[in-house]
């Protein structure tokens, strides 16, 4: 087990933040306020989460876990849409569906099928894994959605040109779909490429800090990365296909007007 941290020690760490505030003040970077707000936010959020998780862990019932998962998904969908510039009516629901579908399916498979956790909703595993999967899927979904809607805005004439020559909506938008899904996958692929070399993943280091042997920690990390990659792919694809359905109608028309300015 890792060494417990007292509240005093947390405050000591917060003092380190003071260093950056001081720097900002001396160099007139104007970041002091932002640093303080970000630091305070982070502390409050995490303390709250710690409280809630402690409470949930004690309950040993799947419902609060699913509830937390749902709240996390809604927040993830909101964040994903928030980062997308071209929005259409219903984009939030689509983002939610894509993130929910991919994250829950893959986390469920990982917990019950691969890690064989019994019961599968064991909070110690379910919550952190779902959290990691959601966080990465959200990035993929938002990038893919953003790329797709902006390509249809800018590259609109290429898609429309094909439609005008008799292409079905799928033939016309196929390469746009492809590019968007690929864009959604890039961060995951990039992070996998340098994992262990340039970056030491948080979960693995966390497990090692908590006393797990590096061998076990590494295997967990590998499993988790595959789950994350699969969920990002599925989520990106889902989000793009839903956006495709919203922006190209069954009469093979591009509905550019649905993209709010």
């Amino acid at each position: 087990m890792s060494v417990p941290i007292s509240l005093f020690q947390v405050v000591l760490a917060a003092a380190l933040m003071g260093l950056s505030v001081l720097l900002s003040w001396r160099l007139r970077l104007g970041l002091g306020r932002d640093i303080l707000i970000a630091g305070t936010r982070m502390t409050v959020q995490l303390l709250l989460v710690g409280l809630i998780l402690g409470w949930v862990f004690a309950l040993r019932s799947p419902w609060p876990i699913l509830g937390i998962g749902l709240v996390m998904t809604v927040l993830a969908a909101q964040a994903a849409v928030g980062r997308t510039k071209g929005r259409y009516p219903g984009i939030f629901l689509d983002a939610f569906a894509a993130i929910f579908g991919s994250s829950f399916i893959l986390t469920g498979l990982a917990l019950s099928g691969i890690l064989q956790i019994r019961p599968w909703f064991e909070a110690q595993y379910a919550v952190p894994i779902l959290g990691m999967v959601l966080g990465n899927t959200l990035t993929g979904v938002s990038l893919a959605q953003d790329r797709f809607t902006s390509d249809l805005g800018v590259g609109r004439s290429a898609v429309e040109e094909r439609l005008a020559l008799g292409a079905t909506r799928w033939e016309a938008a196929h390469d746009t779909v492809q590019t968007a899904v690929r864009t959604g996958m890039v961060p995951t692929l990039n992070s996998m490429a340098v994992m262990g070399l340039v970056s030491l993943p948080g979960m693995m280091t966390g497990q090692i800090l908590a006393g797990a042997s590096p061998g076990v920690a590494v295997r967990y990390q590998i499993v988790i990365m595959f789950v994350i990659a699969a969920s990002s792919a599925l989520g990106s694809l889902g989000a793009v296909l839903l956006a495709y359905r919203a922006l190209l109608d069954s009469r093979d028309r591009l509905r550019g007007e649905r993209l709010g300015k």
Partner: peptide, 28 residues
């Protein structure tokens, strides 16, 4: 639209050779 074809005022930017671009719709 294979019968009633509309040509946009400003063609979309294309890539590849002119020949490949001309051949593209034959794939529909």
């Amino acid at each position: 639209r294979a019968e009633v074809m509309y040509l946009l005022q400003r063609p979309a930017p294309a890539s590849g050779t002119v020949s490949a671009h001309l051949a593209e719709p034959f794939g529909f």
